[in-house]
Nucleic acid binder design. Structure first.
Lengths: 343, 343
DNA sequence: CGACCCGCTGGAAACGTTTCCGGATGGCGT
DNA sequence: ACGCCATCCGGAAACGTTTCCAGCGGGTCG
């Protein structure tokens, strides 16, 4: 249980050499082969393993990187976390997970807490980003990489994706498939993703020449299946003239599933009567039936890119900020088939 | 970007008092109100925030807890992580995520690496546990809580669940619903969960008086939908006499979805022709159609319990080991309805 | 043969914090 | 009025590591 761990000093004493030589020997820098062997043996015998807190204090480096998101349960963030871990771990960095909460203030506090130096860098994906957060990030004592919106600030490393363009791809795909009345099922507009996707849909509607009365928008109060189901009921209700939508673009796979549910409730088939697209390319959407056509925002790629940006920044603190953009990719599956089974 | 952070020494100098008093004032222990105010003002002015590495070195405490699992992507582990984070975070602990890989050796190495003291405790959920791992845990320099199988070792804190009993609950439920020929779709037998669930099924089959020829078992080579689909095809193939199973107990929600897929491929309806149960009560299973009857192993509860065990152990290192058992709970949903829609 | 340089070693400082300990001061009880 | 105790303060040590600096020896080149 509690074995008082051997310290470097004891190893030095045990090997009969100085502390300095012991440290050097164990790092292989500037020590004679004889010395190395001697120290190595002593260390082995005592079961020595270096204490990272002592090392951190001296080197001003913790070999830890924090990953902060609103909620860790979200599959998108899980994918990012996995990717980040995979990139950083081989370089000897540990990953600390943190939650920003869903208020912008909490995220700002978190960035400020970086001052206590428990971590060499931070990857943060803020749900709601404001100027205060950007300010705090700029004056943060360690590198911060933002994944998500680029905060409109050239000086901050960022990895983003063009989700507006992604929504556009979904709309174009539906139009090409012959759908004409396309509704948009969005999440809360006071979130960064919500705003971006709204922008994307509006632009796509304009680009495709949809008159306002040919598009309908409904905003769910959360990015969940339940909220999507509620909002989609309204979206799919017949218009005054009895006509209905023939396609729904959802801002999210979860919302999309809610839309499929609502469609079935209303006696409509998917994709027969209504085509549905999601976003995020989650396992959920892949496995669902019908499998969801979804716009991948490359969560893994973004996570990996963010991790690489961290490494680059730690390598060279003065390099100009980099802004990686991962292009969205539409993955066509059953939920938008032209002639689908009537399941 | 890089503002050289203020140290306690500078705060002391700036306040014109000693280092010791400064430290005490900031901790509110044994300092006069005047002193506290004076130091607080100085700290405020300099934007001081304490350095955790210095503190850790001195206090021999990192305020970090590691959570180690085979792969972070698994929804079950994500739930645990979330729960652990929720319990530990209010107590000032950060959570470090680590991966054990899928070999027992890697897990052992990980536990050994605890010697470098980057963390105050470890919560580990080993996929494959052997004696070497148990040994290493026993001699670990920090508290370790095992979640999963209890390692058959009374001296190690553990949080487990009786997944064998859970399988039993699923079988009983199916029998009560009138199902007679029940197949078992398991995952790899060289994993701890795989073995336990096999044991559970065998016991349940015996208890219900199923002759060996009335039960069929198939082992998928992974706990995934794809592997489940492959294995379930064999499981659902007609027997020599042309008869088929009327129920499948899957060791996992993912495998269960594979089974549903295979059933539909074979032209069978779920739950009409074949009832299917899963295990883990994942979001996936809840949202799937038909929604999956599933045995919840209480991932969140287990995570929370493990975190509480960590706190208790950190509080009192000498207390006897505790073994929390979270009872499995069957959640009945559409996939085992007596008369289902023929979807 | 002397000067210089290079490789190796040991002493000591430094990283930033907490806390032990001794000393000073003030108040209170006797 | 004196002693005692509680309260508060400052000096200094300690946690475990890395690294600067100086010294020492041996080899090489001029």
């Amino acid at each position: 249980m509690t074995s008082s761990r051997a310290t470097l000093i004891e190893v030095a004493r045990h090997a009969g050499v100085s502390l300095a030589s012991t440290s050097r020997a164990l790092h292989g820098t500037g020590a004679s082969p004889a010395m190395v062997e001697r120290v190595r043996a002593a260390a082995e015998e005592l079961g020595y393993s270096p204490d990272v807190t002592g090392r951190s204090l001296r080197m001003k480096k913790t070999f830890q990187v924090a990953f902060a998101v609103a909620d860790i349960g979200n599959p998108v963030y899980v994918e990012m976390l996995t990717a980040i871990h995979e990139v950083l771990s081989p370089h000897g960095y540990r990953v600390v997970v943190m939650t920003t909460g869903d208020t912008a203030g909490a995220a700002t506090d978190l960035v400020r807490s970086l001052g206590s130096g428990f971590v060499d860098a931070l990857v943060i994906s803020p749900l709601r980003a404001d100027d205060a957060l950007a300010d705090e990030i700029r004056r943060a004592p360690v590198p911060v990489v933002v994944v998500g919106r680029s905060l409109d600030d050239g000086a901050i490393d960022s990895v983003s994706t063009d989700s507006a363009d992604g929504i556009g791809q979904a709309v174009d795909h539906l139009v090409r498939s012959g759908r004409r009345r396309i509704g948009f099922l969005n999440g809360p507009l006071d979130t960064t993703p919500g705003r971006a996707r709204q922008r994307g849909f509006d632009a796509a509607a304009r680009a495709n020449g949809f008159p306002a009365e040919r598009t309908t928008v409904e905003v769910a109060d959360d990015f969940t299946v339940a909220a999507g189901l509620r909002a989609a009921r309204a979206l799919l209700a017949p218009a005054a003239d009895g006509s209905r939508l023939d396609a729904v673009v959802a801002a999210n796979d979860l919302l999309a599933i809610g839309a499929v549910r609502a469609a079935r409730e209303a006696g409509l088939t998917v994709p027969g009567d209504v085509a549905v697209t999601g976003m995020d390319d989650t396992e959920l959407g892949r496995v669902y039936e019908p499998s969801l056509t979804s716009v991948s925002l490359g969560s893994s790629e973004r996570g990996a890119a963010a991790a690489r940006a961290v490494l680059a920044r730690l390598e060279d603190g003065e390099a100009p900020a980099q802004h990686v953009v991962i292009g969205p990719r539409l993955l066509v599956r059953e939920s938008t088939a032209a002639e689908g089974s009537s399941r």
